[in-house]
Structures are given as structure tokens and as C-alpha cells.
Amino acid sequence: MEVLMIRDPVCLMTITPSHAVAMSEFGGRSYYFCSEECRDKFRERPQAFLNKAPGMRLTVGVMGSADSNQDDDIKDQVYQLGVAIAERGLVLITGACPGLPYACAEGVREAGGTSVGISPALSLDEHVHKYYSPADAYDVLIYTGSGLMGREVTNIRSSDMVIIVGGRSGTLGEFAIAFDEGKLIGVLRGSGGITSQLPAIVASFGKDTGSHIIYDADPVTLVSLLLTYYETHQFRRPSCFCDEQMDAAG
């Protein structure tokens, strides 16, 4: 089987993402390198190399409560998360629902970013009239026809990193998928719902899936910490679906 390659933007060597020695994020895009020396040259003068090889846009999945009756302070906190995601050049992915994910999408839209909604519906008409979900904050709506629960896997697997905001049992399900699949996860402290309970829940799991969790109450800081960890650690094993798989059974 032919293996799809990527190109080091500095030396132009072709490599696979799983065999890259280093990775760097710039403008919300990921660039992979054959050596730390090439990465360091890129970081010194990124503009000189951006047109040498394309970088992939990194995606952030924001999962949280679809309840529209949220505290104004929490809605503003999640809105500011959307602004932070857009300002870093990242692509937002949500379940295209009302509530906190919609507040985040509004922040992305107002900051001029890109937002993708993974709809449970089969069409725009069904999205609006059956699921009572908004459509005005998204650049793209992907119609899965999978229903509210079925689209959760698509949400998580389409995201390079996942952020949990508020939420109840449905959000806990999305968190569990992300955790079991070894994703990088951020938790927005102070956003209510299950976020205050997650440390104890994770401790009760008693297993290591390769997932790494970062907690912070400040949206800008949380996004920055996630990106730093992704480019220094997570890019080597972005999920359990890679060469060095770990046992996440149980």
C-alpha cells in the first residue's frame, strides 16, 4: 500500500507524520520536520518556509451543554474561548447544537475564524426543525444523519484536541470517547456542569490510554497550553489509531 507522505518545509525531505522527529504550530497549522534542527530554523524565520510545504489546519472540538439557559458569565467565558481559538488560526468543531458550543461558535465567527458543525441531521431543514439547532454561526455544516449520540464519535475523531465546557451526561460521553481514544483534552474550569467532577472521574478509571488532560479557567491560557503540549508531545501519538497503539480496553 502506498503511504501518503508530508514534506519538511525546511529541507523538503518527505516523511510520514508518525516518523517526524519534531512538529511546530504556526498560524493554526501543523508543520512536521525530519530533525530538531529543521524545526528550529523554521521557528526562527517561519515566513521564509510557509510556501515550501503546506501545513494542515489544526482542529479544536468544543463539547458542552446544549442547554440555552446558561449563566451569562459562563456563556461569556465560552464565547471568549471561541475568540481565542479563532485568533490562533485554529478550526472549531462542535456538534452544531445550541447552548455553550453555540456560544463558542459565535466567538469564532465574531473573531473571523472558521467553524465546522457536525450535525445529527440529514439536511438543513431537519437540523433546524427536528433538532432545533442553529445554523448561522458555521462556515460548514456536515450532515451525518447519525442522531445526537451517533455524531459524537465523528465530533471527537475530527478534532486534533478536545475542550470540555460545562455539560452533563452527553458531554461526559464525548469526554469518555476522547479519553479512551487517547486524545489531548482541555477542560475549561469554572464553566460548570461536569468540569469540576472530571478529576475524580478520571482518577476512578484507573487506566492509561495515552490521553493527556489540561485544566485551566482562562480560555487564552488553555488554548496556548494545549498547542504547546500538542507540538511537543501529542503529535507523536495524536490518538490510539496510530502505529504505537496502547491497550485502552476496559
Rank of each mutant, 00 (worst) to 15 (best):
S24V: 11
S24I: 09
S24P: 08
E25H: 09
E25D: 08
G27E: 12
G27K: 12
R29E: 09
S30Y: 09
S30M: 10
S30Q: 10
Y31W: 11
Y31L: 11
Y31S: 10
Y32T: 12
C34W: 08
E36T: 13
E36F: 14
E37R: 15
E37P: 09
E37S: 14
E37M: 14
C38K: 12
C38T: 10
R39G: 07
R39M: 12
D40W: 13
D40F: 14
F42R: 12
R43H: 13
R43L: 15
E44R: 15
R45A: 15
P46S: 13
Q47F: 13
Q47D: 15
Q47M: 14
N51W: 11
N51L: 14
K52D: 12
K52W: 13
K52N: 15
A53K: 10
A53E: 09
P54M: 13
G55H: 05
G55R: 05
M56I: 10
M56W: 08
M56S: 09
M56T: 10
R57P: 09
L58Y: 04
L58T: 08
T59S: 10
V60P: 05
V60D: 04
G61M: 03
G61D: 03
G61I: 02
V62G: 02
M63D: 00
S65E: 00
A66S: 15
A66W: 03
D67Y: 14
N69E: 14
Q70W: 01
D71G: 08
D72I: 13
D73F: 14
D73E: 15
D73H: 14
K75D: 04
D76W: 10
D76K: 14
V78Q: 04
Y79C: 03
Q80G: 08
Q80K: 15
G82H: 07
G82T: 06
V83I: 11
A84L: 13
A84E: 12
I85W: 06
I85R: 05
A86H: 07
A86N: 07
A86L: 08
E87R: 15
R88H: 13
G89R: 05
G89Y: 05
V91D: 02
G95L: 03
C97V: 01
C97I: 01
P98C: 07
P98N: 09
P98F: 04
G99T: 01
G99D: 00
L100Y: 00
P101L: 04
P101A: 03
Y102Q: 00
Y102P: 00
A103V: 01
A103D: 03
C104E: 01
C104D: 01
G107L: 05
G107H: 03
R109L: 06
E110M: 05
A111V: 03
A111E: 02
A111H: 03
A111P: 02
G112D: 04
T114A: 08
T114Q: 09
S115Q: 06
V116R: 05
V116D: 03
G117V: 03
I118Y: 01
I118G: 00
A121R: 00
A121L: 02
L122D: 06
S123P: 07
D125G: 07
D125H: 11
E126Q: 14
H127R: 05
